[in-house]
Nucleic acid binder design. Structure first.
Lengths: 218, 218
DNA sequence: ACCGGTTTCACATCTTTATGCGAGGCCGTT
DNA sequence: AACGGCCTCGCATAAAGATGTGAAACCGGT
């Protein structure tokens, strides 16, 4: 028998807290270590408990669940955080994710799915409500190719060496450093840069870097 | 009664194709317009059908499902694409996403969940298997703050004006342009840049831009 | 009233980039 | 063999950026 997944739970709504708590306790393989109405004392709470999973509401009185995320990670690094909230606000989502949350469910999620998500999370997955996932994905998709005509410039046909050079730029190196890194002369670097600018249709280091990053050429 | 969600399906494995096809046809609210063993003729297929949803396998003979994604989008822009695959390879995931896929499920997903995902997708969500979602999220999380000591420099205390300047840099502007934009002299821009470099602990435009972008200061 | 930070500007100097022009060697296709 | 693309290097000039030094004006707080 594998050891149970240990859990702490932060939720200010008493009914909900007791409901989910009961559900967790009733599920074999899960063990609830604590359920708190606010996260004023996250660090105290977690430093001893060191749970596998933290279920966190966002809209908590006092310290918001989002701001608590980094504290959780700092106090108990192995703890995976599952945000459980009514907000599908972009800003909140990304702040939580950047801070280190690993899953994000809206509260309308069925209780059974919440339980499933806890297992997913512990298995190394990132359960996400589909509508949340969409917002995240949109940040990866390149701006929808406006017209529907085929032929996307997608590929700028940079040569291998040119890619080396632009990687250097994106890494923040000067020509001199790139030359040293690649064991070529600075004039050669200049020469390649020329070609790169030509192909990317830009005319400054900054533009080239930004374009390369946005188009995912790096 | 709302009109059914129309679907096309690309999958080379005959058994699987027939199984899922049957399932779709048996589900009220879904309508299968076609199921193909390869996507050689996506554009021909879709130009008339204009389905709401395209279910695509990745590992297709000939033209890969990933490469077909942009073609689908070009031919039938309103079609939402759900990748269905055995690969949880980072590179494949991101190529599919960048190309415009809106959902990504691994094939071990239960048939009932696949059906649910189709509805999610059509509702504007992005169903994703938790393990896939994790890989995506990792690209958003800032490098795990190495030590656990509190107090991360997070906030570089840039002044309002300094933020204006760095926004200009990130937009790819030269000092001269920034000066024009903000109606100040180029020497003033230089002066602010100095402070910014100081606070960000960098010493070149490129480093400043990269740091600002990564730390989300913009 | 003094201090510190912000915003503005100036002048000088040195380094880095951008760009024009030229050139030899390598390699694969036609 | 001739052609085009790629990789290498050089020299030169003009523009942009980095850095040092200094300073006046404003504003909020001790």
């Amino acid at each position: 028998m594998t050891p149970p997944i240990t859990i702490v739970y932060y939720e200010d709504n008493r009914e909900l807290r007791e409901g989910i708590s009961f559900l967790i306790q009733a599920t074999p393989g899960l063990m609830l270590l604590g359920a708190f109405p606010n996260c004023q004392h996250v660090q105290d709470d977690l430093c001893d408990l060191q749970p596998d999973v933290a279920l966190m509401d966002i809209d908590l009185p006092g310290l918001s669940g989002i701001d608590a995320v980094p504290l959780v990670k700092a106090t108990s690094p192995k703890t995976q955080i599952l945000m459980l909230t009514v907000f599908d606000d972009e800003d909140k989502i990304f702040r939580a994710i950047r801070n280190g949350a690993s899953g994000y469910l809206l509260k309308h999620t069925a209780p059974a799915d919440i339980i499933a998500a806890i297992f997913d999370l512990h298995r190394g997955g990132s359960p996400m409500t589909a509508s949340i996932a969409r917002k995240v994905l949109l940040h990866f998709q390149q701006p929808p190719s406006l017209p529907m005509t085929a032929a996307q410039p997608d590929d700028y046909r940079l040569s291998a060496r040119e890619l080396d050079i632009i990687k250097g730029l994106v890494a923040g190196y000067s020509y001199k450093l790139i030359a040293g890194e690649l064991h070529i002369s600075i004039d050669t670097v200049r020469s390649h840069i020329r070609s790169v600018y030509d192909k990317l249709q830009v005319n400054s280091k900054t533009e080239a870097i930004l374009k390369a990053m946005r188009e995912g050429l790096v």
